[in-house]
Design a protein around this nucleic acid. Structure first.
Lengths: 167, 167
DNA sequence: TAAATGTTTCAAAATATTTTGAAAGTTCAA
DNA sequence: TTGAACTTTCAAAATATTTTGAAACATTTA
């Protein structure tokens, strides 16, 4: 396979993976492009490579920066802004995991806790509901905890975790 | 909070969580409904509870069954089909993890492997690309492996994993 | 075999999400 | 200040996804 073909394939694949995990395709593609670029890219560069509009590029770059996985850089003498992706994959995954926990898991836990405190009612349905939501709360909070434990290991957390699991 | 209110809140929340993780909202809602129902429900029941069409219900039930987390049941004497959700949450999470690995991670790994074997090219860009995609392949396959290790533990895999991590 | 009961399919409609592009905003050098 | 270079915003347009509903299909009963 030639470089250009491989590059395009990578960007497409990363974009598709993003969609499947609830991340805007273009956002994932920009991230892919920045990941494989040895140097920071300008907005123009990104627009041109991916054939997307200025507005689209701007908005998705902002999102990526909100996630903490893309950074703005300034080149001396250049007026333009340049962008680069988090280079350390361990750190990338850690940030994504933490961000998703903060944005999605934690709020869900709050709701689960809230609704399992239904009052009055003592029907079978209500009892079953209470049991299930409590069980779910318990599971999700344990899972969230586990992820926290795993990602708080400094370097090579995947390898370290596998080792601990094998013992 | 009253039962009906809590129930509706749960279904909405589960649906929203689903969307954020790339799962059709209605599919997640049907699953939520079945989870908290002490008894299997018919298509009619589901349509009525969620105010959705027959076709929608049918398609999403099929998807849920494809994921292996909802089952068809027959009640003696009844012509209708009934549906119930996987009751064990550990098992539910295990199935989701495995299915996502099979459908999304594995194919991505294949592409990553494929594209990191670019030929000819010895530019800096190509070298960086090769290094990055190899690193990514390595990371993703380790993560996939870790998940496999974690979920293959029979019961209480979350708890067991946390214990191992704390040692 | 026909009718009744129930499920699936899928094209069209509805809805939701993403993308565009031009105007407004910002920054900076002269 | 002014204006050139660049970025952001956001309403409207394009696109993608989901949902509907009725016809086709399947299965059981009379």
């Amino acid at each position: 396979m030639k470089f250009e073909e491989a590059k395009s394939k990578f960007i497409q694949t990363w974009g598709a993976l993003g969609s499947q995990w609830g991340i805007n395709k273009t956002m994932a593609q920009i991230h892919a492009l920045l990941m494989i670029s040895p140097d920071p890219l300008s907005m123009e560069d990104i627009m041109e490579e991916l054939h997307i509009s200025r507005g689209n590029t701007s908005m998705n770059l902002r999102s990526l920066m909100d996630w903490g996985i893309v950074f703005k850089e300034y080149k001396p003498g250049e007026r333009k802004e340049f962008f680069s992706a988090e280079g350390n994959i361990d750190e990338l995954a850690r940030k994504i995991a933490r961000e998703r926990s903060r944005r999605e898991i934690k709020p869900t836990l709050r709701v689960l806790q809230d609704i399992s405190t239904i009052d009055g009612e003592e029907s079978t349905k209500a009892a079953h509901f209470k049991a299930k939501t409590e069980e779910l709360y318990d599971f999700v909070s344990r899972a969230d905890n586990m992820l926290e434990k795993i990602t708080e290991q400094k370097e090579n957390w995947i390898t370290k975790t596998i080792l601990k699991l094998m013992r």
